[in-house]
Design a binder for these strands. Structure first.
Length: 495
RNA sequence: GGCGUUAUGGUGUAACUGGUUAACACGUCGCCCUCUCAAGGCGAAGAGUCCGGGUUCGAGCCCCGGUAACGCUACCA
């Protein structure tokens, strides 16, 4: 281990701070892995903090899924909401009082101010700026309100936000450990909202306050945060605090090089677990993203295959390559195959039992087929789609008689959107899907037949919605996505 | 539009502080093995390093200028 990291007297402490807004994300696992390695290599601590400050995007089941997925991968944390620690609470929604206290310091020393505009007013300003081809920025209208103006707004009972008062002149720069000196002119740094009108902090404030209070020494996060780093630095300075080291990692990409997204890739860790990817294989693959490990040099060199232990021993942060790596499922599958083949027959059998043929899964499927078969051997005929990675329905099967391919695919895309946005229960899905049918003038039969064929590959199946629930949201959505992809490719080939 | 980051085969990476013909893996194609399909073995195609200048005996690596992609540009993270 020859990392060029300056050895700091304080123990190394890093953190990941996922938001419970949906399924746990591969990006979280990626950044989590890097943080984990960094901490373990230096005898430091790895903290898990839940950033649940956005009430509008909060998903109740999300936090537990984050815990489960990270544990599944073996990325365990030393401090966190569920295991506690000396600097808790580790859930930001439980720390709102702390932020409110700290923001008073800023208000008192003039580095923050109250701003009384309504969201509508701000939106109007933004539109005008855009129309005038100006950069959309907060216009600073409330930076210097007189006591009378403030009193007037207060008397009106207007809600306010608290904003960071970015200096009018000069610039803020910092040294990224991976990228070197980066600087931003203050002209380009907005007066960021610190406390929203609902009293919750924004990411920026909560993040800085917590990182300081939790003694975080190294902030290892994704590249998308570079632009907001000057705001964070300004905050540290406004508080008079030391600034941690920053490491901005490259962003995982889709095949088309855009930031990895659920539209174009399975990004849910739940999907990878349910599809039978092995934790060491996923970790290994993530470790390949952006380099850091010694590269293979000779023919049939297997240096690309390594365990977490090997990463702890050999991963070099100074070897990370900064171009955004494409998350290539094809190579991940090859790697996973390597791991599967390396298993002993007993271990392989066990892996099968614990995933595709788990008691839990079979128990959920059984009642759906029991009344529909006459011999047990028919189970497979009816339930095959539960055990397949993909089903590819033929056009003759999925295309309703009175519909064109084009409108059918458009409707399938709508199905995807609705299912994605609806709580994954029969009670919620059924009305939502029926409503979509009404809106688009698709009969219930056409509607459900299309969905059935895409998800199960057949025109006859156990109850569709119940089957989808058992099959799982992540994989159901993936089938819809793959269906659309496949059909799009076929259409392109014909052209 | 503004700001920032990045740039090596289709994809992931390699190439010591500038030094042979740009290497390895995935993928693709072919051959072998084989009842089939995988796996495995052997082999092939595929980049002249985003473009243009410059420095140098010599540049993927250094300098200058472009371009493109991506990210940010929210009372989301």
């Amino acid at each position: 281990m020859t990392n060029p990291t300056p050895t700091s007297p304080a123990p190394i402490r890093v953190r990941i701070a996922p938001s419970p807004t949906g399924d746990p994300h591969v990006g979280t696992a990626y950044i989590g892995l890097l943080n984990y390695i960094y901490a373990k290599q230096r005898g430091g601590q790895f903290v898990l903090r839940i950033e649940d400050t956005d009430q509008t995007r909060f998903v109740a089941t999300s936090e537990q899924m984050i815990f489960d997925s990270l544990r599944w991968l073996g990325l365990t944390w030393d401090e966190g909401p569920d295991v506690g620690g000396p600097y808790g609470p580790y859930r930001q929604s439980e720390r709102t009082e702390i932020y409110r206290e700290y923001v008073k310091i800023l208000l008192a020393n003039g580095t923050a101010y109250r701003s009384y505009e309504t969201p509508e007013e701000l939106e109007a300003v933004r539109k005008a700026q855009l129309a005038a081809k100006l950069p959309p920025r907060y216009n600073g209208a409330h930076r210097e309100l007189t006591p009378e103006q403030i009193a007037a707004y207060e008397a009106e009972g207007r809600a306010y936000v608290i904003r960071l008062k970015v200096p009018a002149e000069g610039e803020t720069s910092f040294s990224d450990e991976l990228r070197g000196e980066i600087s931003f002119s203050h002209n380009n740094v907005d007066d960021q909202v610190l406390i929203k009108s609902d009293g919750y902090p924004t990411y920026h404030l909560a993040n800085v306050v917590d990182d300081h209070l939790m003694h975080i020494t190294d902030v290892i996060r994704a590249e998308e945060w570079i632009s907001s780093t000057p705001k964070h630095i300004l905050l540290y300075k406004a508080f008079g605090w030391d600034v941690p080291r920053f490491w901005h990692m490259p962003l995982l990409r889709n095949l088309d090089k855009s930031k990895i997204s659920k539209r174009k890739n399975p990004v849910s860790l739940i999907y990878y677990r349910e599809s039978g990817f092995l934790p060491p294989a996923l970790l290994n693959f993530l470790g390949l993203m952006g380099g850091g490990m010694p590269a293979p040099t000779e023919k049939n060199d297997t240096a690309e295959i390594f365990t977490l232990e090997k990463m702890l021993a050999g991963f070099r942060f100074d070897k990370i390559s900064l171009g955004g790596p494409v998350f290539d499922l094809t190579k991940l599958k090859w790697l996973n195959g390597e791991y599967l083949r390396a298993l002993s027959p007993e271990a392989f059998f066990e892996a099968m039992r614990q995933t595709v043929f788990s008691d839990r899964y079979l128990q959920a499927i059984a009642p759906l087929v029991q009344t529909r078969i006459e011999t047990l051997a028919q189970f497979g005929d009816l339930a095959d789609f539960f055990f397949k990675d993909d089903v590819v329905p033929d056009q003759a099967v999925f295309l309703p008689k009175k519909r064109t391919l084009e409108e059918t695919l458009a409707f399938a895309a709508e199905l995807l959107t609705v299912i994605e946005a609806t709580p994954f229960t029969v009670e919620d899905l059924e009305p939502a899907l029926k409503q979509l049918g009404i809106d688009k003038e698709w009969s219930v039969k056409e509607n459900f037949t299309l969905l059935r064929t895409v998800v199960t590959g057949k025109t006859a199946s156990p109850p569709l919605l119940e089957s989808m629930i058992v099959f799982g949201k992540a994989r159901t959505l993936d089938r819809l996505r793959r269906f659309l992809d496949t059909q799009k490719k076929l259409a392109n080939q014909k052209r």
